[in-house]
Amino acid sequence: MTTTTATSPVLEATGVTMRFGGLTAVRGVDLTVNSGEIVGLIGPNGAGKTTFFNCLTGLYVPTEGRVAYKGTVLPPKPHLVTSAGIARTFQNIRLFANMTVLENVLVGRHTRTKEGLWSALLRGPGFRKAEAASRERAMELLEFIGLAHKADHLSRNLPYGEQRKLEIARAMASDPGLLLLDEPTAGMNPQETRATEELVFAIRDRGIAVLVIEHDMRFIFNLSDRVACLVQGQKLVEGTSDIVQNDERVIAAYLGTPFEGAPGSEEAAEVEAAEAAEAQGTTSTEGPAQ
């Protein structure tokens, strides 16, 4: 699906390693995301996907390796990463629960506006204009994800699926060049999952590259131009959906055959398979494909 011709790298992560004491959660991962691309990141639970995201966004300072956005190396500070142009969502939804839907998105505009305390106190024409522009942009984004009619609701009162969408809108409010989605369809029903798929394509069509972590295999292989598979903190394979889908090591990791004698991967993979099967089971009437 790589239709874009001029593919300049948006994200270049090289040799990213993250150790927690004795545990190496991410081990020397290289990953490149080009502009206009949707890249999928898969792997069993505990493979280090979220940790890798945290390293990219500065929530963790990687033990080794470097992360560059459009050619410049990023400092490991979350707010600087966001203002550089990488925005993210969280696996466990982290909205500002007691702010309204609109306010959540307005907070996302933070890096693209600069009115400080003084202009807030003096309320000059510049302040009003900036505030109006922010609101307009936020409403436009709510329109885009289909939550404009709930702009004044508290975000904590939204249904689960809409909370996930709102997190995406909030991230998009910072006008990112790259959007990191951590399991955007977790807990969604099949209809919502399909809608999310459309949403990710629409985001890409707005010129935003997307790196997405996902468990739902059908979702990820449909969506991604390229897929990387992380197992035990290491990148196992990377390539187009077809390649990764048929790679026997990936199948092994997901279906429970021991992989390179790595301890623990078996259990992880079993859990993973069971979960995937469960997810499948709810979508169709067929029995789980064991």
Binding site: T57, L59, P78, H79, T82, S83, A87, R88, F90, R94, L95, F96, A97, N98, M99, V107, G108, H110, T111, R170, A171, S174
Partner: peptide, 13 residues
């Protein structure tokens, strides 16, 4: 509400 999410939204906490 959530300091981690706030910094991830670009706020210098």
């Amino acid at each position: 509400e959530d300091e981690t999410a706030a910094t991830a939204m670009g706020i210098n906490g």
